[in-house]
Amino acid sequence: MAERTQERDRERDRDRALPRIRLDQPRVRRPRLLPEYDPEAFGRLSERIARFLGTGRFLVWMTLLIIAWVVWNVSAPENLRFDKYPFIFLTLMLSLQASYAAPLILLAQNRQDDRDRVNLEQDRKQNERSIADTEYLTREVAALRMGLGEVATRDWMRSELQDLLKELEHRDGDRRDLFPDEGARGSDVPDR
């Protein structure tokens, strides 16, 4: 029994020695070995570069640079040439440019695919809402049509009134008996 108590005391002392993790406070950031960067800013930069690489201006400048490079290294004095005939340094520079251009273009394409995916999802949701609205309006128009079938139209009212007028004309003699002349009784209240 005493051993259990001593063991519990040791565990309690160990728990007190460890720093307690608090959930109401942010965690302490650990130092990183790799540098941190903003992926969104890097993505925007890669899109700008990829957009420039796909223009005619880039092709013209690249062509002029290569022509100047070759002309300089062929026609310049021997001691001023920095890349002799097989143009190994030019090949290295073009390979380096291509090795960076390809991943930048792929990154820009991936970002564009993500934007397209989001736009397609928004378009799909908008289409679903439009379809639901159209179905609702279709049901409402159908209900109005059904309701209008039960509503008295102007022509129907006109025919009913004409029928009543004809019926009253046939009863013209009976009408005088039903509504005697008020003036004959000597009423002093005028009709309104």
Rank of each mutant, 00 (worst) to 15 (best):
A50Y: 00
R154H: 09
D83N: 01
I88W: 07
R124K: 14
Q126M: 15
D123V: 06
E40V: 14
T153D: 09
Y85A: 13
A142S: 12
S46L: 05
L92V: 14
A143H: 08
L34P: 04
D24Y: 03
L34E: 13
R129N: 10
R158T: 09
R115E: 13
Q112W: 06
K125A: 13
L104N: 11
L92M: 12
L107M: 09
I105W: 04
L34D: 14
V74R: 10
M157G: 00
R145S: 09
P39H: 05
T55P: 04
R44N: 09
V70L: 07
N119L: 14
N79A: 14
R51T: 15
D116W: 06
S95Y: 08
E121N: 02
N79H: 12
S159H: 04
L148M: 15
Q162W: 06
G147W: 02
G54F: 00
T138M: 05
E40P: 02
E78R: 04
A143S: 13
Y136M: 08
L161E: 05
G147F: 02
Y85P: 10
A41D: 10
E128H: 03
Q97G: 15
E128M: 09
L94W: 03
Q122R: 15
S159Q: 11
L161M: 13
L45P: 02
G43E: 08
R154S: 07
I131M: 07
A142D: 14
R124G: 07
F87I: 02
F87S: 06
R117Y: 10
P35K: 03
K84E: 12
D116K: 13
A41P: 01
P26E: 07
Q109R: 12
R81I: 09
Q162G: 01
L92Y: 11
G43W: 05
D83S: 01
T138L: 07
L64N: 12
G147C: 03
P86Q: 05
L137Y: 10
W156D: 08
W72G: 03
Y100K: 02
W61H: 15
R158S: 04
M93Q: 08
R44Y: 05
A132Q: 15
E150V: 06
A50N: 02
L104Q: 10
Y136R: 14
T138P: 01
A142L: 14
V151A: 11
